[in-house]
């Protein structure tokens, strides 16, 4: 899979792209990754689903989506017109669900890749159970690999002891690339009311506050695997993005920062170009892993 530039938008933070067309030209992006899509429709978790935290936020959306058949019938016709790569984030509760969903997406010509979400912390069986053990990830990735013949990106959970081991297990099971990080499991309490701020008590932390953790994990994973690494977690500027590239990422995703500045993704694209010019770098790919220690 080739991208115009190394900037994608992260699943669950960019809707289906259409939410942002008033602010940016989607064709300026390397790609967009649409919302988590499951085999069957899901209503998601109860409100409240969001709590702001210092320099970040917790969410407990819980994979609300209308299911893959709805995507194929009603959303694909629109997103397939975009002049950028469109990836589908595939989520599920059982191996069979992931496989069935991936097969349906495979039939769509204009979707060059799926991002397998084995790391959603917000539903009881949201895949995180798969994403936190080497056996778990190997079972889902292996099963999907058998039926899915295009680019298979696997999105890793940071809620693990050794993310490099998990990444290796995904690579061994047939992943073409890995993306990381999904949200960090967190919690927020309203002391006055003595109640949790989220209906689900715990939720996924994202935004600027997670960046140091994400950067460290990208660095560890990039050293361990031979497949491309896509870095994300708290990226809010071109400088943030370049740090991920230097740590070993081949591309980056922008998530929560889109909520604060809906035009930030294109600013990151331009900022990376400026950086390359200033540093006389011909191909942005030469930044990948160029960290000097």
């Amino acid at each position: 899979m080739s991208l115009k530039n190394p900037v994608l938008t992260a699943s669950g933070t960019f809707g289906y792209g259409r939410e942002y067309t008033d602010f940016i030209d989607l064709s300026d992006l390397g790609g967009i990754i649409v919302k988590g899509t499951t085999l069957h429709p899901r209503e998601g978790n109860a409100y409240p689903r969001m709590a702001e935290t210092p320099s970040g936020m917790l969410n407990a959306v819980g994979l609300q989506n209308k299911g893959v058949d709805y995507f194929v019938a009603h959303i694909y016709p629109e997103v397939s017109q975009y002049d950028t790569q469109v990836l589908v984030n595939v989520s599920g509760s059982t191996v069979d669900d992931y496989v069935a969903c991936a097969e349906k997406i495979q039939a769509l010509d204009r979707i060059p890749a799926i991002e397998l979400n084995v790391s959603c912390p917000n539903v009881k069986q949201g895949g995180m159970a798969f994403g936190v053990s080497c056996e778990g990830i190997a079972s889902v990735v292996g099963a999907v690999r058998k039926v899915y013949h295009k680019h298979l990106m696997v999105k890793l959970s940071p809620n693990v002891t050794s993310i490099a081991d998990i990444a290796l297990a995904a690579e061994d099971a047939g992943a073409d690339s890995v993306s990381l990080i999904n949200t960090l499991l967190g919690m927020s309490i309203d002391a006055e009311k003595r109640r949790p701020r989220l209906s689900t008590v715990t939720g996924g932390l994202s935004g600027a506050c997670v960046k140091p953790v994400a950067l460290r994990m990208v660095w560890q994973v990039a050293k361990a695997v031979n497949i491309p690494v896509v870095g994300l977690g708290g990226i809010s500027s071109a400088t943030d993005a370049i740090e991920f590239l230097l740590a070993g990422a081949s591309a980056v995703q922008i998530g929560t920062a889109n909520f604060i500045d809906p035009a930030v993704s294109v600013k990151v694209v331009r900022g990376i170009e400026d950086y390359c010019e200033r540093h006389h770098i011909g191909a942005v790919s030469s930044l990948t892993g160029a960290l000097e220690i």
Binding site: G12, G15, E19, Y20, Y47, P48, M50, N59, T256, N258
Partner: peptide, 17 residues
């Protein structure tokens, strides 16, 4: 006045049943 993150329909944080 549900609490919001994006305000533009992208995050699904503000839903009402």
């Amino acid at each position: 006045e549900n609490t919001m993150a994006c305000g533009i329909g992208a995050c699904l944080c503000c839903v009402e049943d």
